[in-house]
Design a protein around this nucleic acid. Structure first.
Lengths: 245, 245
DNA sequence: ACCTGAACACCGTTCAAGT
DNA sequence: ACCTGAACACCGTTCAAGT
């Protein structure tokens, strides 16, 4: 937590849209969704609200810009071991987003809001583009590009959101409690659901307790990749498989 | 728009949690996310805020209850032609949610928020349960239930949200503009993106203009179903196929 | 062109008081 | 037990005024 304490001292750098967005991200990371207010932002930047409105139209635009900055950084990060197939490149993009959403829990909500509010703004196309290019590289026929890319993107964002929510719930429940303890408690809670109404959830609860979340996430991606391969590339069934872990 | 105008006249029925949730849904449908305020709600119910707080803890709980009511109704609706395979039952549940989200655009945002805020509340388990039961009925091995169900649920909610966002954007852009005109305009906008940064989106833009959204949605579900079948039911490749439309 | 900061309209929530 | 409605703290946004 080595945040530079520039609290109420005079600002030295001139204000800029970049500085404002940077401060918004820091504030969101430190205090969550509810912590980003123009009051908190003006204090952190040592200005008045009018100064912020000179650079940014309103709060929604600021949130979109913060979301865009973090997603762009996540998509630009090079993976540790360079992927050498479209499948591996898709997995790399997916884990980049997965990690970004875990590091910035507010991101999953904002991505969902932006997909609803302004689906073809700037952030979502970036994600569709980087996945879609690999779908194309797989050799999927053109009239299936949209379906295949949508299936991948929606799975990635949905599963990453659910994972972040689990991590966040663990933290909120009790600061000392870690992820494993939380999943344990949650798993017990599901097993106490009415067996007549929730037979499936009860049955699946046991698995949840001991699952590895990154492995689970990867299994889902491979499931969708298998669907794409089987449906659109009938000759290459075996290509999706990875060495067993 | 034949809403009963009970505006400021004296309330006859006693207040109840049910009446409040019903009014909240009506208000959300009529005026959108921003339209649901305690002020508007008290006027519609001819009471004071304290009366509402007697039945409901706070606004988040009210939104969760409204979301739950609509989702429960959607899941309980019987499909027109009774499905006779797990695949068809999954498609029926998916279209129930698709239609509910299209009828209540605020629903997609609320589902996303609830998945982030309180992932194992009451609404999400209901959706997981109804999909999961059919995944089990497919014969998927138990250790893949969670992966397969997650992939389906995340695709369904993500694609339905995107569809609702397209419809909503069309309405917001201009009341007279319909979906087709909006997609046309959006498609043109994508084709003007920088070809170096967005080659895929540009290429896919043309398809978007003439796609049928329900067919597109179905294609994605079948893609995931194919993945489930190919990965977990190696003996039954052919079972997923439907008669060509 | 860029910034200041008081002021405005509106929001969720509380609570003493009523029935 | 259930409801009333004034009051509170806080929010996003505006705007006349300064430099």
């Amino acid at each position: 937590m080595a945040t530079r304490t520039r609290r109420s001292q005079r600002r030295t750098e001139a204000l800029s849209r970049e500085r404002i967005v940077e401060a918004a991200v820091e504030l969101l990371d430190a205090t969550g969704e509810g912590g980003l207010t123009f009051r908190a932002l003006t204090e952190r930047l040592a200005t008045g609200p009018g100064a912020i409105y000179w650079h940014v139209a309103n709060k929604d635009e600021l949130l979109d810009a913060a979301t865009g900055a973090v997603v762009t950084a996540a998509l630009a990060t090079e993976p540790a071991e360079p992927p050498d197939s479209p499948q591996d490149r898709i997995r790399a993009v997916a884990f980049g987003l997965f990690d970004a959403i875990e590091d910035h829990p507010w991101l999953s909500t904002q991505l969902a809001l932006q997909l609803s509010r302004n689906p073809w703004g700037s952030v979502t196309p970036g994600i569709f583009e980087s996945i879609g290019q690999q779908v194309r590289a797989l050799g999927v026929p053109e009239d299936s590009w949209f379906t295949a890319t949508s299936a991948l993107v929606h799975y990635i964002l949905g599963a990453a959101r659910q994972n972040a929510a689990n991590t966040a719930s663990a933290r909120t429940l009790a600061p000392g409690v870690d992820r494993a303890e939380f999943l344990d408690a949650a798993s017990r809670a599901w097993q106490e659901l009415d067996p007549d109404d929730y037979p499936f959830i009860r049955a699946v609860a046991a698995q949840m307790r001991e699952h590895d979340d990154r492995e689970q996430f990867l299994a889902g991606i491979d499931l969708v990749l298998t669907g794409i391969t089987a449906l659109h590339l009938p000759g290459e069934q075996g290509r999706t498989s990875r060495p067993a872990t």
